[in-house]
Write a protein that binds this DNA or RNA. Structure first.
Lengths: 192, 192
DNA sequence: GTCTATAAAATGATAGAC
DNA sequence: GTCTATCATTTTATAGAC
């Protein structure tokens, strides 16, 4: 089961299809056809359609959780932590662009106990980021703007990076990280 | 047909349900039940499930198109135009928070000719915003960062405002607009 | 304008042959 | 490991009674 190459293909193709039309719009027949087999054959590799969604979404959610935990703990300034969080999102987006679409839009179709686990991870992520911003304001590293607006704005941009990244070529990872840091942390206006 | 109050109720309830689970996850039975009637009764007011989606999505898409057209034409600075675009998004989000969710996530389930029309409006919107940013850079009102990154970052935040706005109370429209302008245009870092 | 009854198609999933 | 055949359920939508 560990080396089931076919299962990996199924998950990869499913993530691609879910990204285009969403979990509910893709039938097992659609998925099978994209793989060149019949729908019934899928069940030799996966237990159910639900399991496919779960494997796709939970893996990425766990990567984000591990990432933010590590950044939270490290002994660096708040601005440096925000820089690392931007890098975390860019890295995961590049590696799991299709899956992120389901993390953003299909998570509500998870079933218990995954649904509860996902929501806890998501809330925990937001809370850790909120604490980093709060400390940054206290230490006068970050402007004293409404913290929830700030949090929302950063997360919106980082979470939807996948919508835009795959369309643009000619920008490498380092350049992208640099631009994102500039825009998210320093703004675009010149009139100060 | 103009004064069909029931039809308006159907569209409003449908938008609420689509927001929670997406167009494909909501059946006509679900919608009917939320309205306290049977599924068959819906068809006295609407032609099909497709028509419901179309009415919800296209109205909001047209509002955005009208708004950006008007802003584009007016004789004000680029930064002032960006300020007005932020106001446009805040206003439409407050008035059509449920519908915006379908505009973001369910538009791909539109059928022709609506699908093509929607995509044209969306591309047109992005292009008008791109031109405003470009002129702002030329006139030295806006920092000379990668224009596509800037465009993407602004739109990501503005388009997902609905995810966040309905959760937070205690912030009024004017305050929200002010904070968004600050974050999107001036950034959050203090170290310059 | 809403109901019951029902058609026609699509869906997730299983059984068993090869 | 994939196939054909099939099942049980759900789905959108229509017809016709009230």
């Amino acid at each position: 089961m560990k080396g089931d190459q076919r299962k990996k293909e199924i998950l990869k193709t499913a993530a691609q299809l879910f990204r285009k039309k969403g979990y509910n719009a893709i039938s097992m027949r659609d998925l099978a056809q994209a793989l060149g087999i019949k729908a019934a054959s899928l069940y030799n590799h996966i237990k159910s359609k639900q399991e496919i969604l779960s494997l796709i979404v939970m893996e990425v959610a766990e990567s984000f959780t591990l990432g933010i935990d590590s950044i939270s703990k490290s002994k660096i300034s708040s601005i440096q932590k925000l820089n690392q969080i931007i890098e975390l999102h860019v890295n995961i987006t590049i590696e799991h662009a299709d899956a992120i679409s389901s993390v953003n839009n299909d998570w509500m179709h998870l079933k218990e106990p995954d649904l509860d686990s996902f929501i806890k991870m998501r809330d925990g992520y937001e809370d850790k980021l909120r604490k980093i911003i709060k400390k940054g304001i206290k230490d006068k590293e970050i402007a004293d703007i409404n913290i929830e607006v700030m949090l929302f704005s950063m997360l919106s941009t980082l979470r939807t990076l996948h919508l835009w990244y795959s369309k643009k070529q000619g920008i490498n990872k380092e350049e992208l990280c640099g631009q994102m840091k500039h825009i998210l942390l320093k703004g675009i206006s010149l009139d100060k």
